[in-house]
Design a protein around this nucleic acid. Structure first.
Lengths: 205, 205
DNA sequence: CCTTGACGAGACTAACAGTCTCGGTACAAA
DNA sequence: TTTGTACCGAGACTGTTAGTCTCGTCAAGG
């Protein structure tokens, strides 16, 4: 059994309320806070579970009792901090909705402490199948939101009937991740403006 | 001193030709071949240096005598196999040149044994600063080639004078890497067609 | 034939993920 | 109050891997 974040929240047993000591909420918070701090301060070297446990003043087993892997802790810490959803706006204009979506995406990833933590998380995901799958699921929900937004615009006649929405989505998230991970070009508001116009109208300025 | 691949080719000493036993060319080939084979057959688990050395019938120190890190061996093996350059075509039509470039890029990464090896290499680069820098340098040359192609088209009046070439490049390589690494959508010729038209003329079909 | 440096083999160190165990502690039911 | 259960911090332990070091050997030249 897993909650909306993919975390394990299976109760110890069905049909028996609970016996014994309860989960220490302070320890949970300390672990998430320590994980986020280490993720944020990571200078490229991987964040270790020992370091998280030590920084949280917690035994390593307490981490593994509540999370299935290191990646799960890191992802949970980042989601916890992100405050969740970027709302999908509905202004009635495809151009405005899309521009708001792209700007929010760029801003959300750009502002500290998200940026270094997210980069560190991607590095971890490269070697952690478990974490990679969780991130794939998380990003799929964002792609779906963008798909809805574009489909509304197409139905409203602001995009050709046979427009390739999947390609537009991949152009937007492709540019985002490519620039975010390589860091060779900015993800500022000017870039969001130009990307919005480019995917809707081509390279005309 | 490094050659065009970033490999260490520093001679042992200046001003002294060479004494002692020479480098075993057969061992070099065996290492590169073994590395490529393991990279190709990798099922997601990382390729280890011990495995490369064992498969090549070579001591591990022989690997580290000629390459600075595991990542360097893997990158060298892939470059060695790629046969190098995708030529930049010049048909006189921006659309045709760009389409050829994109198709060649998609095909080059797609056909085995490149695809699994390249994906494994990206995974390694996530934890290997040395390798990440080499890959950045390698991809920068491809971006530069694409930039030249687009600049020619712009100078020929096939793109607006103030078109954002950097954004077009990032849309192309962004879509490529995003789809290549996530694998949620194909990188076939149809996709190349649509991407070419999309970056040049917007979502009209 | 002697010096130099590459070679195969493999021991060794240092990290790190994840498991296991221990003595102790909170909580609730009996 | 007693007793059983599950969580707690601590840290030992296993297994894997990158990279280093050392050994005895082998080839190329002076």
């Amino acid at each position: 059994m897993r909650d909306e974040k993919g975390m394990d929240v299976t109760p110890p047993r069905m049909e028996r309320p609970h016996t014994g000591r309860r989960r220490n909420e302070a320890a949970r918070r300390a672990i998430l806070d320590a994980a986020l701090r280490l993720l944020t301060e990571s200078d490229g070297t991987p964040v270790t579970v020992d370091a998280i446990a030590r920084a949280a003043g917690v035994g390593k087993q307490t981490v593994y009792r509540w999370w299935p892997s290191k990646g799960a802790v890191l992802l949970d810490a980042l989601i916890d901090q992100a405050g969740q959803e970027v709302p999908s706006p509905e202004t009635g204009s495809l151009r405005d909705d899309l521009h708001a979506f792209i700007t929010a995406t760029f801003d959300g990833a750009q502002r500290p402490p998200s940026a270094p933590a997210l980069r560190a998380l991607v590095r971890e995901a490269a070697h952690d199948v478990h974490l990679a799958e969780m991130m794939r699921a998380f990003t799929a929900t964002r792609r779906a939101a963008l798909q809805d937004l574009l489909a509304r615009g197409r139905d409203g006649g602001e995009l050709p009937e046979d427009a390739d929405l999947g390609l537009i989505i991949d152009q937007i998230y492709g540019v985002f991740w490519y620039r975010f991970l390589l860091g060779h070009a900015p993800l500022d508001h000017a870039a969001a403006d130009r990307l919005t116009d480019s995917v809707l109208r081509g390279p005309v300025s």
